[in-house]
């Protein structure tokens, strides 16, 4: 039973494909997700990073059909999200885990119930107690019998997150959407939870989109990193490249303030992520961009483009793509 592997991704092998996705609130005034394209392959872990309010949660909610799209399309396992057909089966194949395991568990339901509920909703075939026990022990809660009759308040934060992971994995999903899965946990136990998540990728071929503002998490488990700023992906590529040789000034600034990165001069951006109801013209990052603020962009003659021309991701090298005028211009100059 626990030897299952994800089958049937879409014909081109992708588990999810987002094409020019836009999600808006307040009658279009809030552009929470503003033209995002991203695909995630089988057995792939993609970390979606960026400051609060940049649209990460909205983006993954749209993947399970919880946010209507103003524009663009999303397919999961080859089926269009929002289409009539197959929504029920998609609900099972795409599972989500949240930042706060305490809030996500019903305090009056035993751990057994917490895992069994999903099995019942999705009418999963098999012997329920066996399935529940198997799920718990695969999530590291062993022996499972010791946890079945307990209630959430009798577990530690890390154990609660394991219960939620067990409940999600019991449904044998193809895709796991994890919204800040370890942010509420002590740093000391984050590694164990991340190792558990990664083990499901390696043993079952599950794909994961992990939303986080923690770049260390990306370095720990992600094959690729997508950096979001104000509703848009501004840099995406293999983890080693994006975190090892960041191109976008925003990515560089984010990395420079992580205590665990040695050798980068701290570049503290002022202010917080700006408001998606007032997206700046030109490159949306330009009001906070160190390259613009230092006058370098003007000196090199592309300051006006930064302030006036909006742009999307352009290929840098291979799979590493960046939305930055400075990078685009130096790439052309180098050719």
């Amino acid at each position: 039973m626990w030897g299952w592997r994800v089958s049937d991704p879409s014909p081109n092998g992708n588990v999810v494909e987002l094409t020019n996705v836009q999600v808006q609130f307040n009658g279009g005034r809030v552009r929470a997700v503003d033209t995002v394209s991203l695909e995630v392959g089988r057995s792939e872990v993609v970390a979606l990073v960026g400051e609060s309010g940049c649209g990460k949660t909205t983006l993954i909610r749209s993947i399970i059909g919880l946010e209507p799209l103003a524009h663009g399309s999303i397919t999961v396992l080859g089926q269009e999200v929002g289409g009539r057909r197959g929504l029920r089966s998609l609900r099972r194949r795409v599972q989500m885990i949240f930042q706060d395991p305490t809030g996500a568990l019903n305090p009056r339901h035993s751990i057994y119930e917490a895992v069994a509920e999903g099995l019942r909703i999705h009418k999963v075939k098999g012997h329920e107690p066996t399935l529940v026990a198997g799920a718990l022990s695969s999530a590291g809660l062993r022996p499972a019998e010791r946890y079945l009759r307990r209630f959430p308040h009798e577990l530690s934060g890390g154990q609660r997150q394991r219960v939620l992971i067990a409940a999600a994995m019991a449904l044998q999903p193809a895709l796991l959407l994890a919204d800040e899965p370890v942010a509420s946990l002590d740093a000391s136990i984050r590694g164990e939870i991340l190792a558990l998540m990664r083990s499901f990728v390696d043993s079952h071929g599950v794909s994961i989109i992990a939303v986080t503002h923690d770049l260390g998490l990306a370095w720990n488990i992600a094959d690729r990193v997508a950096v979001m700023y104000l509703g848009r992906i501004v840099e995406v590529g293999p983890t080693e490249e994006v975190l090892g040789a960041p191109k976008h000034p925003y990515t560089r600034a984010l990395l420079s303030v992580v205590p665990e990165v040695a050798g980068l001069e701290q570049q503290i951006l002022t202010g917080e992520t700006p408001d998606p109801s007032r997206v700046p013209s030109g490159c949306r990052f330009h009001p906070r961009c160190p390259v613009v603020a230092s006058g370098e962009a003007d000196r090199l003659g592309f300051g006006d483009r930064c302030r006036g021309v909006d742009l999307e991701l352009e290929p840098e090298v291979g799979d590493h793509r960046v939305a930055c005028h400075a990078v685009a211009i130096s790439a052309t100059a180098g050719q």
């Binding site: 136990i189 164990e192 370095w219 720990n220």
Partner: peptide, 18 residues
């Protein structure tokens, strides 16, 4: 349990305290 970004030893190797 704090990964060093850029350090190959902690790449794909989350560590914690059981």
């Amino acid at each position: 349990s704090f990964p060093t970004i850029g350090d190959p030893a902690s790449r794909m190797n989350p560590r914690g305290l059981a």
